[in-house]
Design a protein around this nucleic acid. Sequence first.
DNA 1: ACAACATATCAGCGAGGAGTGATATGGTGC
DNA 2: GCACCATATCACTCCTCGCTGATATGTTGT
Lengths: 114, 114
Amino acid sequence: MVQIVDDRKSATIERRAKLFRGFADPSRLAILGALCNEPLAVHEIVERTELSQPNVSNHLRCLLDCGLVASDRDGRFIRYRISSPRITVLLSDVDSLLDVVSEGVDACNNYRGE
Amino acid sequence: MVQIVDDRKSATIERRAKLFRGFADPSRLAILGALCNEPLAVHEIVERTELSQPNVSNHLRCLLDCGLVASDRDGRFIRYRISSPRITVLLSDVDSLLDVVSEGVDACNNYRGE
DNA sequence: ACAACATATCAGCGAGGAGTGATATGGTGC
DNA sequence: GCACCATATCACTCCTCGCTGATATGTTGT
């Protein structure tokens, strides 16, 4: 019983962490940022983010499997788009949190992030 | 000019990524989750999360420097608390996003997260 | 069917972070 | 001042992730 509750709790935490990790990468954020404006094909994402094509594809695969983006075939293109408005909400909430803590985040070098 | 804009943009993306990375760890999420209910001293966090004491201290240092938590000395204890309600907002955003994508997140094994 | 473009996949390398164990610092009450 | 508790710090190892380069798959027009 306690076991089950603990398992559930940690499962939830693991999920949250995993989802956060989906956002915790500059490349994926760049991709999501680009897709926030409009759906884009892979080569368009490559152009705008200046990431390599395999790199973009790899991240898109990850984002797709996680359900953060969706894809539609359009001729020989594959058009990707944000899967849920909640993602946009999350991204803008992060920005408003950054308004408060950006200074500290920049300064934090413990587990350095750059 | 374009340079500057690009730098700013990427700086923002880097910041977002760094901030997300702050949340992208089960231990830190457990700590933040514990602190969401009430301020706690370190040893209390250790008890509730069942993490090792040095581990908790390390993460607290990181969270403190990033400005995600704040601390007050109380006798020989040091009491930590969530620094901004926006953090709670962010955490609940993630949960509501998980309502939609948890299935996919569980399934995603590309960059495996467990 | 073939050429050209769009996208996906894979192996391998390099780097950064998380946890541990041992130890140091700091505050408290006797 | 000393024993004790609370917290912080440090060195080290392991593991995972992200990027690249080469290549495969797939689609379209001729």
